[in-house]
Amino acid sequence: MAMLELDGLTVSYGDLTAVDGVSLRVAEGELCCLLGPSGSGKSTVLRAISGFETPTGGRVLLDGVDVTDLPPNERDTSMVFQDWALFPQQSVQENVEFGLRVAGVDAAEREARARETLELVEMDGYEDSRPGQLSGGQKQRVALARSLVVDPDLLLLDEPLSSLDRRLRETMQLELKRIHDRVGTTMLYVTHDQDEAFTLGDRLGVMDGGELVQVDTPETVYDDPTDRFVESFLGTTNFVECTVTDGRAPTLSTPFGVAFDAPVDGSGLEPDDAVTVSLRPERLAFAPAAEAEREMTPQTAGDGGESAVSVVATVEETVYRGADLRVRLSAGDADLFVEPSVASAPNVEPGDRLAVRFTPSDALYFDASGARCR
């Protein structure tokens, strides 16, 4: 059964529609991430679920009960905010007990539950500390404990790790995953960070312009995006603008100076139509041109007999990025980049030539509207 169900949720402010007809089901015990750029509506969805925003359309159901018109205190949800929102004059123990105190839980039970939850988030021993004495990561653990201690049906997390430095953020992601696996609370987590969403989410919901574009497992969303926006937002890729020369195959003319047959249904494509080809850098094979040109022709047999597209490109620049090296190339009238690990990267400099190869089935294809060609 779904712990959370959104049925056509819409939130408007005058002529501005911040959330447009979002429908989503989150199963009991699931950790679902809403992922999208700033302004995509993901935090507004969270506020509408919690009762801090009033929907202009649609419904919010918690455990099968319609709570759309209920105030926040009558919904069994709890929120972890981006800025922690701890009471500076209160101790850690008092901050964690706050929700229980409001709910009328007696002092002995409040203390016991707060200490148990602080131990869960590895903050036992800090009960008497003030928020001002804690690091950012410790404050975030306390904010999480304060939300967990009330045992909500649904825990809402609004970019809670965004203000932490990278190393601490990655540590807290793993800690949060561990806590979720241990307590099993249903969680809806908002982030703009795809690495964070991939680390945490059982499923991802990608938002754009107030709409929920795609919902699926992290692997499916990355490998099988529904449209160009999802492909562009998740990871990095080379978008190559091509033109249909024959709609039957369909055959695509590329700015590399070669043509190839795309493994998609060409029934909706006509000659001269634009098709964008997405080439993920991890799917591009390359080698110094002096070694590879002898065996690489414009189209040569690849694995399983599939024709591979190969081009010779010129190195324009290299950018050292620690674990990997980004090599930007010019190939005909287009730019490409590859990202080999530093350990496997060839020793290249601007002006050097590389032979680059890909198989058409490793690419993704999008029509002029951005819709996926399949």
Rank of each mutant, 00 (worst) to 15 (best):
G136P: 01
T68W: 02
L161V: 03
S91F: 09
D124F: 13
D128F: 13
Q140H: 02
G99N: 09
E122I: 09
V92G: 00
W84E: 06
F98R: 08
L154M: 01
E109S: 07
Q90R: 13
Q89V: 12
G57M: 12
E127K: 01
L144Q: 06
S147W: 01
R115N: 07
V80Q: 11
E119Q: 11
R59K: 12
L100A: 00
D158A: 14
D158L: 08
D151F: 15
L155H: 00
V149D: 09
R115E: 03
P131K: 14
L144D: 04
V65C: 13
L120M: 03
P88K: 10
E116P: 13
F87L: 14
V92R: 08
L161A: 01
L154A: 04
T77W: 06
R130H: 14
N73Q: 13
V149K: 04
T77E: 03
R146Q: 06
G137C: 05
Y126L: 15
L157I: 03
G64C: 04
G64I: 02
R75H: 00
D151M: 13
K139F: 08
G125I: 05
F81W: 07
S91T: 10
E122D: 08
V149E: 07
T68G: 01
D124K: 12
E119S: 12
L62Y: 02
E127Q: 00
G99M: 01
E122V: 12
S129Q: 08
Q82D: 06
A103Y: 06
Q82S: 04
R59I: 06
V105N: 00
M79F: 12
R146L: 01
Q140S: 05
G132L: 07
